[in-house]
Write a protein that binds this DNA or RNA. Structure first.
Lengths: 246, 246
DNA sequence: GTTCATTTGTACGTATGTATA
DNA sequence: GTATACATACGTACAAATGAA
């Protein structure tokens, strides 16, 4: 197989497309070896430099992994869906958030009742800035996630920036108040969708929700923010990779 | 400023370190311009190729962003917060497993059909040792989890030890074969319980399942084992703590 | 256990294309 | 329109890790 001369894509992108397609079709099965850079260079009639640029792209998509001396192996048959969260660091949470639109529906200061206090931590009667909104994928009117964030009133000043600046709320807290987040606790649950949420997310009444709740704590272990994200289960999966210390 | 000759790091990494440090110290403020590739090349006395490799690294960390014709601008003042999974070793993943009984129901070598191959990775027709079982809490006859493990046939010898020795399957693989697990990928999904699983777990037909799938890979990125755990959602939540690296 | 061919990683040089200001 | 700066793409060479002989 050769590259298509009348294509106006860059060469390396054509190589990416060709290899991605072949991986998806099973020509190079998961766990199998890709041809060496030299072989690919010869086959596509491009320089090794161009092949390496293509492989760099595939690696950054998580499709293949290369090891010096051992070649390049296929890690996955296709790129993870856009709804998949890949978590290796908290940074990945932000990048994920950056790619989708966030629309704030309500923003108000509330006092926690007993149920909420138990749910997010803190004491009954404590005041929180509650920000509720929906997240949308580009060019799609169906929301992919419902988000309710509770911000400690000490940091309520972030309220006017949320939805404007395209950064995570915890980053706003760090920027505005200089208070560093030291620890994030993440809890995952699943349940049948409550009626009110089904309406907002345009789901069937018997749909399943995955809830990802993140509690952000400062170095003093004070809760700065609690973010509750509700995803339709059929459009969500959470992936994380754990590497052994070397 | 020049690079340090007695350093044993790759040149491009030294450039990364130098620029990262300068960005952090405010020499190049957020929103400001980095010197051009040509200038950096001259200043560090390295080729433009090496400078580009360094900038590629900074870009992938989200510190800078480049636009053709317009130069490279600083996007963030510091490396995006490096949080790490508090899970110290992969071992902590299955720590909970020790406290609950595991009963193997079936253990057999199977050939993966297309669906299974797509699901766990690997190619259609590939042979796997399939171990199916249920987990019980102490003093409770209702199972808390259904587990299906697929072990690469290279490590099929672990089959006779599973359920006898009270250790994780991946540990058995390491012990018996000396093959080290380097990486574990964990994927979480939720869905309505399939009929056959509902029966095994004694669940209502409309119950919700949380599935935690772990793929264990060797240093060569070969899949050694895939473990699929299915929990009733109402009895399950997954918590993890991410802590900022100091 | 050592050697050796293979394969990716690092690093240099050069040239041209294309978006930006 | 012109100069600038990054993007793409060719070439070469050697280093380092891997795995098999």
């Amino acid at each position: 197989m050769r590259l298509n001369p009348p294509s106006f894509k860059p060469l390396y992108q054509q190589v990416v497309d060709a290899l991605r397609d072949e991986i998806l079709r099973g020509k190079y099965p998961v766990g199998g070896q890709l041809p060496t850079e030299g072989e690919l260079s010869e086959r596509f009639s491009v320089s090794r430099h161009t092949v390496r640029e293509a492989l760099r792209n595939l690696r950054s998509d998580g499709l293949v992994s290369s090891r010096q001396g051992a070649g390049t192996t296929v890690a996955r048959p296709s790129a993870p869906s856009t709804y998949v969260q890949e978590i290796e660091s908290i940074n990945d949470l932000i990048q994920y958030a950056a790619s989708i639109r966030y629309k704030v529906d309500r923003s108000e200061v509330i006092a926690a009742d007993a149920a909420l206090a138990a749910s997010i931590g803190g004491i009954s009667g404590q005041k929180w800035l509650r920000i509720e909104g929906l997240r949308y994928e580009d060019n799609n009117n169906k929301p992919v996630c419902r988000t309710v964030v509770y911000v400690h009133t000490d940091f309520a000043g972030v309220g006017r920036l949320v939805g404007r600046r395209n950064s995570a709320i915890y980053e706003l807290i760090e920027d505005l108040y200089g208070e560093k987040i030291a620890e994030v606790e993440q809890v995952i649950n699943a349940y049948r969708v409550p009626e009110v949420v089904a309406a907002e997310l345009a789901l069937e009444p018997d749909a399943v929700i995955v809830e990802v709740r993140r509690t952000y704590r400062t170095v003093a272990r004070k809760i700065a923010e609690v973010a509750v994200n509700q995803y339709p289960a059929d459009r969500f999966s959470l992936a994380m990779k754990l590497r052994r210390r070397t």
